[in-house]
Amino acid sequence: MVLRCKEAKSYGTKKFIEGVFSDGDSCLIIEDSGSSIIETVKDLEALDVVCSNAIVLLDREQGSGVF
């Protein structure tokens, strides 16, 4: 599992992508809004991580209580 930060922090590892991965690893992107998928793919591919699939979870707020 990796996490993409919106910006590199001035403390800690100072990286945009946090987590454990190796060159050539494949990943599945799971996003809660879909708005940052393209940026995430660009950042991961720059680190030689292959991104070929994404899942976006949406809550349409229709009150079903099932998610």
Rank of each mutant, 00 (worst) to 15 (best):
M1W: 06
V2H: 05
L3T: 03
R4L: 02
R4G: 02
R4N: 02
R4E: 03
C5K: 10
K6C: 01
E7G: 04
A8S: 14
A8M: 11
K9H: 09
S10M: 04
S10D: 13
Y11C: 03
Y11H: 08
G12M: 07
G12L: 08
G12Q: 08
G12F: 08
T13Q: 10
K14N: 03
K15F: 03
I17G: 13
E18C: 10
G19I: 00
G19R: 03
V20R: 13
V20I: 05
V20D: 15
F21Q: 01
S22V: 00
S22E: 14
S22Q: 14
D23K: 15
D23F: 10
G24V: 05
G24R: 14
G24S: 15
D25E: 05
S26M: 09
S26K: 14
S26N: 14
I29V: 13
I29G: 04
I30W: 08
E31M: 02
E31W: 03
D32G: 07
D32A: 07
S33D: 11
S33M: 12
G34Y: 12
S35F: 07
S35W: 11
S35V: 00
S36I: 00
S36P: 01
E39R: 13
T40A: 15
T40S: 15
T40P: 13
V41S: 13
K42T: 03
K42V: 01
K42N: 11
D43C: 05
D43A: 11
L44H: 06
L44Y: 02
L44T: 00
L44M: 05
L44N: 05
E45V: 00
A46L: 07
A46I: 01
A46S: 15
L47M: 06
L47R: 12
D48W: 09
D48S: 12
D48Y: 11
D48F: 05
V50N: 15
C51I: 00
C51A: 11
C51D: 05
S52N: 10
N53T: 01
N53D: 10
N53F: 09
A54P: 00
A54H: 05
I55A: 12
V56F: 07
L57A: 03
L57M: 04
D59P: 02
D59V: 01
D59M: 03
D59K: 05
R60D: 15
E61S: 08
Q62P: 02
Q62C: 01
G63M: 06
G63T: 01
S64M: 05
S64Q: 12
G65S: 13
G65Q: 14
V66S: 08
V66N: 06
V66Y: 12
F67G: 10
F67L: 10
